[in-house]
Structure formats: C-alpha cells, structure tokens
Amino acid sequence: MFYLDAIGRYFLMLKGVFGRMTKGSVLRSLTLKEIDDLIIGSLGIVAFISFFIGAVVAIQTALNLTNPIIPRQLIGFASRQSVILEFAPTFISVIMAGKVGSFITSSIGTMRVTEQIDALEVMGINSLNYLVFPKIIAMMTYPFLIAISMFLGILGGYIAGVYGGFLSSDEFITGLQDEFIPFHLVYAFLKTLLFAFLLATIPSFHGYYMKGGALEVGKASTTSFVWTSVAIIIGNYILTQLLLSS
C-alpha cells in the first residue's frame, strides 16, 4: 500500500511539475545552470568509467576467446555491442543515479528542511515547476553524455585490445563494423531519454517530499539512489522487450 501511495504521489508530482510555468527568462537561466551541474559536471567521471569499462570488456572477451576458430575481430564486435547496448546507457545511468540523483535529492531536500521551498510557495511560485522542470530539460541533453561514453568505451576497448597485443587495429575496426544495426543506436538513445527522465524526477520526488532534518536528507538520498536504480533496471527490461524482441 505504501508503494502504491508513493507511486500515486510521484505522478501527482509530475502533474505539478508540468503545471503553471515559471517565467521564461528565469527558466532559461535555471536550465543552463542545471546542464552545468548535472551534465557538464558529470563528464569527468563518465569519461573515466566508460574508457576503463570498454577496456575491460575488450580484455575479458579476448581472454575468453580460447577457440582458434573464432576470429579475433569478435573482440571489436563484442566491445561495440556491449558498450552501445548496455554499458553506456544502462551502467552509466546507474552510476548517474548515485552521482546526480544524490545531488538532486540532497539539494531539494535541504531546501525543504531550510524552508526555501515554503518561501517559494509563499511567493506564489509553483515550486515543483521551478525546481524540477529545469532538471528535466537539462537531462534531455543526457544522450550527448552517453554518446561520449559510447565513443570513449569503444576507444578504451581499442587501446586495450590493440596495445595489449590481443588483436590488430584492422581486426578491431573490422569487428566494430561487422553486422552493425543502426537501430541499436536508436534503441540505446531512446532508453537513455527514458533514464534521463527517471534520473531527473525520482530523486526530485524523494527530495521534495522528505520530512525531518539533516539525517533524513541523507536517508532520502540513499532511498532515491535505490529507487532510481530499480526504475532504470525495470525500464531497461521493458524497453528491451518492446524494442528488440521480435
């Protein structure tokens, strides 16, 4: 019953978010600030993780290819498929649930605790729109971050594979191009958009409706990470079933 209640309140929150809009000029500057905080601020960690995950995928694939009949170019193929289909969109989104999600929950939660949200409401401002809507718009640039993650993941795989002596550069590139299905990119970016929406709204929900003090802000951040991750994993399953299974 508690979960149903929370889901119901989440959708009511969304209704409030898309309710009365904040003044355009204010919204524009808020959105730019959110892009800086949420996307640009995550570039470093995403680049670092993507590069090394791609490298590890290539090494793991190479070490498990013990049968000499299987061509070495499969390392390039496996790196591309793993990074594009799952590691960049899903794995990075779970990381982002920890980084960006905690930031959103704690910043909104602190505003709740220190009555800043009450101050917005007293002024007659739709606090949900003011606080959450710019985050949703900012997160719509998240696919660019995932595109960078994909590129760096494959680059990591290339460097680890080629310079690790597992295969030649030509073999890796042939593997990359092998049986490439463009729809896989569409699928990856579609689910990235869904994850972006979840990353902006679920942590906001946990921050906005939190009660208590500083300790509860910490608890809300943890809860928000758990539920955002759960939603991402479930969303990933549903979209994969809908878009990839024949």
């Binding site: 009365r20 602190t110 220190t114 009555e115 800043q116 009450d118 101050a119 007293v122 002024m123 007659g124």
Partner: peptide, 20 residues
C-alpha cells in the same frame, strides 16, 4: 487570484530561508 494575493504577502522565515 490566490497567487495574486500571495504576491502581496512577504514572509520572514525562522531560519531566513534564503536561497543558498
């Protein structure tokens, strides 16, 4: 009209509630 009326109200919160 409620929003319009609220805009005629000023509030000083206990903890000041300034935007950090």
């Amino acid at each position: 009209e409620q929003r319009s009326l609220r805009q005629q109200m000023g509030m000083v919160f206990q903890g000041s509630a300034l935007f950090d």
